[in-house]
Design a protein around this nucleic acid. Structure first.
Length: 276
DNA sequence: AACGATCCCTGTTGGC
DNA sequence: TGCCAACAGGGATCGT
């Protein structure tokens, strides 16, 4: 599912096409895709004719600066992906947003489960939106071990749930949280406040190791229907996963069988020998 | 305040 | 073989 490495891989592939491009024909075809704007038609009205100044990312949100202080925000949700096409290419199912650049390239947002969205915010709207409370980016702005320690202090929620909470560190999802906990040797159900300083340090240092490897491989494509790069290719990190989706298989570190349990309403994959 | 539960949605999977 | 319930999950929201 799209997490930070998938969103960052998508951003890097879009940079050349979108940076400095003027958007011409803009279309939104599903009410849920534009639901974060009070009026979904604002997405079309605000983007049409305007130039994209810069394409950034915070956590799992693509955030582009657009002329006149607007912020164009795209979230891939669970099943969203972006594809670049020529305007005459056949439109595939679940295409809910299209925008043509002045160079004649069409960007499409494809999202079968409609958990994702496309929105355009004014500065005032952005400060009112929950995404203004997003935490620090897990790749570009990772908190220090001391800051992690303060945040975890006396917390009773399982560490897995806390890693998925986007309000402190933004960008981790179910797959990479499992991988990070495995690399750090921490059990997903450990209460956040129970982690010793050396464990917090291992956890914190595992974050960039896992995420940067994910970005280098173009992200994780679980199957052909979910995340793909904008040119339609699959990301290659699937083969590198140590625990996610490996239930019943031997741990590559110790040979113990990988187990699965539900933590924070999400399936968690872990090695009970490596992770304590 | 912190935490857990629920809901949104649809393609795929697994059980009977 | 065919049908249908269960499952997948990011984030907003709500109840305790």
């Amino acid at each position: 599912m799209p997490e930070l490495p998938e969103v960052e891989s998508t951003r890097r592939h879009l940079l050349e096409t979108l940076t400095g491009a003027r958007l011409e024909a803009v279309w939104i075809g599903h009410p849920r895709t534009g639901r974060r704007n009070q009026r979904p038609s604002d997405v079309v009205e605000r983007l049409t004719g305007r130039r994209v100044e810069r394409l950034g990312r915070r956590g799992k949100f693509l955030m582009a600066d657009v002329e006149d202080d607007l912020t164009w925000v795209i979230h891939l949700g669970m099943s969203g992906r972006i594809a670049l096409h020529g305007p005459a290419d056949p439109v595939t199912a679940h295409t809910h947003f299209r925008a043509t650049t002045d160079a004649g390239i069409e960007m499409r947002f494809i999202d079968p489960r409609t958990f994702g969205f496309v929105a355009v915010f004014t500065p005032e709207e952005l400060s009112d939106d929950p995404l203004s409370r997003l935490g620090r980016d897990a790749l570009e702005d990772l908190p220090t071990t001391a800051e992690f320690s303060t945040w975890l202090d006396s917390r009773t929620a399982p560490i897995k749930a806390l890693l998925l909470d986007q309000r402190f560190v933004a960008g981790l999802g179910n797959i990479y949280a499992d991988e990070i906990l495995h690399l750090a040797g921490v059990h997903p159900r450990r209460p956040g406040g129970s982690l010793r300083l050396d464990e917090i340090e291992r956890l914190r240092s595992a974050v960039p190791l896992v995420l940067e490897a994910g970005v280098a491989m173009g992200g994780t494509s679980l199957d052909d229907l979910a995340y793909l790069l904008p040119d339609g290719r699959a990301g290659d990190y699937l083969d590198r996963l140590m625990v996610y989706g490996n239930e019943g298989e031997p741990c590559e570190k110790c040979g113990n069988v990988i187990e699965r349990m539900v933590v924070a309403q999400r399936s968690s994959h872990f090695c009970s020998r490596c992770q304590v």
